[in-house]
Design a protein around this nucleic acid. Structure first.
Lengths: 347, 347
DNA sequence: CTGAAAGCGCTTACAG
DNA sequence: CTGAAAGCGCTTACAG
């Protein structure tokens, strides 16, 4: 171009110590004039063999991740780790078509590492991602041999929530769940469906309920399971409305997420049922909105940001190669739970 | 490797019609056995000259984008467009160091197009991004000649909010703003600082207030401006607490965001001031939480998801090359506003 | 301190 | 239907 070789230009941009600062200035200046803004990122990545980017893959719609406050917190944690590592975060859109187009995005992602979030244990995406042979961390599930994992203590979370209710004297408790299996349905859930739960954390919660029941010497039948069609207030409201009508309505509802609980709160208000006087409600996650609603939600705090951050650090190779990180949870008692009503007539 | 050339393997993966399906099967099978998952994304991108990825750059901390509900909605909209286009979304972390390291990330991003969000008019990042000479769309600001732009009608938003209050009889109104300029400060804002506002939408809002005042034949001095140190409930609460003490306390507060308004709501509750009886409050954005709090927030709805979606479509080249998209806003009257108190003694 | 050479892993006309 | 060749834009030892 103007006297120097390509290598020297490369050095001017990447290794200032490899050439005189005078020459470097000349090169940079000439580049500026020519409208050259620096090495092409793609070519550099190919040459270096590293991208400076990590990928997050979600089986949900990409946009769903943003409409679920809990997922947003996880994203925030991952993003924070990326910031610290000056690494880009690529959101990989996985469309769930039958013909495998969903795995295409995985193979097409130019990243150094993957985080998988909100993925069912047996989703083919897991295998596809692992086949890429780049560092991969699982969030919540699946829990695989030799694959880094970050999650909460879901079992304790469920146990704490139910124990709280049992200690309050509740003996008719409904569990409002979301997605026991990848196929969505809604309505009451049979014993078999419970056992078939396709998500590790779902099964862990089931165990937690059992723990709580055992500790009180109570029977499994005390619990009614109900599956919400969606993990948002609307789904929670519709499900709670269904649960609340009829004779043997529960005196307490345990939900899989605060989003569901917020919906249940609305449904109760709409039905003229007072929370917590007539009905106790326990959420899960402790998203910011949990304390904003009235009454403020009793919930189990799961450190979502920390979860994302831990996953991010593993991705960036910044965390010691710990295979499993299980974050502790904590019961947060606020205003949506109270002792079970002494007796209940009709509604 | 096993008889065929590289080109044929490439065709097996990319152009099934270029070879017999029998040969293709043999190649795919051999690849599987060899653990070859398909063309390297980076090499393909270099060769093709296209990434299949768009980048979103934010001057805020990457993680901030996730803690602001309004920003999350914008992200959701962009993500939705990416999904539709089966395009990856790269979050570009821009650290705000002095030595230009912030622009490095821009030049290092392997993307086909950029969206800039939450960027001050004179941020050097704008120039850096534009220098990349790839399609770039600005969200909210800056509004530049020849550069695609998507934003709300911020001027009308401000006008609607203030007019609502004025019509209710309020004559001592405080505006709780966030970041009139890139440098953060907090406290009462002088006339000069108002004029210096570094953000296009901030200036637009100022004009909107003027419009409302004019329509009522009222003077600019009716307004007090106060800048919050952060765009979250905590900042809103602290600022509102400061505004609310003293003699000439406002009968109404107008905020730059629902986040700020939610904080103000808390501050009022803490101070024993009833909303809306003693104090009217209007938010901005209409985030989901706006309707969850008690009292539900009167606010101006800005279609954030639509804004992100529109920006995303432009990025992907799916939208007609419209240079400017200005989305309409709408006043949503809920429960946080009421007629000004007839008279007010001391607090 | 500077440059020639090899290599990163693909794709795309094009000739056969 | 298949393969040889050129090219995508860089980086990295290495020799001078």
């Amino acid at each position: 171009m103007l006297g120097v070789s390509r290598a020297t230009v490369s050095n001017a941009f990447n290794r200032p110590d490899q050439l005189s600062s005078e020459l470097r200035q000349r090169i940079l200046e000439a580049a500026r004039v020519a409208g050259y803004v620096g090495p092409d990122p793609t070519a550099r990545a190919l040459s270096r063999g590293t991208q400076g980017t990590v990928g997050l893959v979600l089986t949900e719609q990409l946009s769903y991740a943003f409409s679920d406050p809990a997922a947003v917190l996880v994203l925030e944690g991952i993003a924070r780790a990326c910031e610290e590592g000056e690494t880009g975060l690529l959101l990989v859109p996985v469309t769930t078509t039958k013909d495998g187009s969903q795995t295409r995005a995985i193979n097409a992602a130019a990243v150094d590492a993957f985080a998988l979030y909100s993925v069912s244990d047996d989703d083919p995406i897991v295998e596809t991602a692992l086949a890429r042979s780049i560092p991969t961390v699982m969030i919540d599930q699946p829990m695989l041999e030799g694959v880094p994992y970050v999650g909460h203590d879901h079992r304790s979370a469920a146990r704490l929530a139910l124990e709280h209710l049992l200690a309050l004297g509740h003996r008719r408790v409904a569990v409002l769940a979301y997605r026991l299996t990848p196929e969505r349905h809604s309505g009451e859930v049979t014993r078999q469906q419970q056992l078939d739960a396709g998500y590790h954390h779902t099964r862990a919660r089931l165990q937690g309920y059992r723990d709580a029941l055992r500790a009180h010497g109570l029977d499994w039948d005390l619990l009614t399971f109900f599956e919400s069609p969606s993990n948002d207030p609307a789904g929670g409201a519709a499900s709670a409305a269904a649960l609340l009508q009829g004779q043997g309505a529960p005196t307490a509802i345990l939900t899989d997420s605060d989003q569901l609980a917020i919906g249940a709160l609305q449904a109760a208000a709409d039905a003229g049922i007072s929370v917590p006087d007539d009905l106790s409600l326990v959420g899960m996650d402790d998203i910011p909105a949990a304390r904003m609603v009235t009454p403020a939600l009793t919930t189990v705090r799961q450190p979502m940001i920390e979860k994302g951050h831990a996953a991010g650090r593993i991705l960036l190779g910044k965390s010691p190669r710990k295979k499993r990180v299980v974050l502790p949870v904590e019961l947060i008692v606020r205003e949506s739970t109270a002792p079970a009503p002494a007796e209940r007539r009709t509604r």
